[in-house]
Design a protein around this nucleic acid. Structure first.
Length: 187
DNA sequence: CGTCAGATTCTCT
DNA sequence: GAGAATCTGACGC
């Protein structure tokens, strides 16, 4: 159990694609009471702004998507299919609604259950909509420096067929060496 | 490997 | 109040 180095605001304040790649190998941490849950990020997707038809922000600036238009380094957590929570990280500049979805992690400590899917990531770490808007540079939920991922695979994103030309954009990234990548592969 | 239905709540009109 | 929704688990071959 090594000491954690929390990632700083400047890390997130870049374009979503860069952050999505850089987050691979980092450590997702959620502190609950005296429990420090840790998992290694192995799969991410970038949602690159309001012009990206797969990005929620493309439907306009609403109460739900407001966090994405805010400063980088905050969590964007929403409910999908009425039951699954999706953990995203806001990146880029203010008013530039970019985000990175955490699709899969490897359990490191105090994390139980499956973690190879975005809904499962939130469930196993105990992340909920309560964390929507949470500052990853200050609170109990954050990312820490991890290990470098040498072998990154790039594919189109999952379940965004509706997004026309954006459905094929190569914005999903995962660690080729990991056995914890989500099984739905579109590339 | 593929297909498919379930199951639930929030969002915006 | 309709409809979406960055999914999961189960089942079949």
């Amino acid at each position: 159990v090594k000491p954690l180095v929390r990632l700083a605001r400047s890390f997130y304040a870049r374009d979503a694609e860069t952050v999505a790649r850089a987050l691979l190998g980092s450590i997702l941490v959620h502190v609950v009471g005296d429990e420090e849950r840790r998992a290694r990020v192995v799969e991410t997707e970038a949602y690159v702004g309001a012009h990206d038809l797969a990005c929620h922000a493309s439907k306009g600036r609403t109460k739900r998507t407001e966090v994405m238009f805010g400063p980088a380094g905050h969590a964007y957590v929403y409910l999908i299919y009425g039951m699954h929570q999706m953990l995203n990280v806001v990146t880029g500049d203010v008013d530039d609604a970019q985000a990175v979805l955490i699709r899969a992690v490897e359990p490191l400590s105090l994390v139980t259950g499956k973690t190879n899917g975005p809904g499962l990531v939130a469930r196993s770490l105990g992340v909920t909509r309560e964390h929507d808007g949470a500052d990853l540079c200050a609170g109990s939920l954050f990312f820490a420096r991890g290990t470098r991922v040498r072998d990154v695979v790039v594919t189109p994103r999952i379940n965004v067929d509706y997004a026309k030309e954006w459905a094929k954009a190569p914005l999903r990234f995962y660690d080729a060496k990991s056995a914890f990548v989500s099984r739905r592969t579109s590339g």
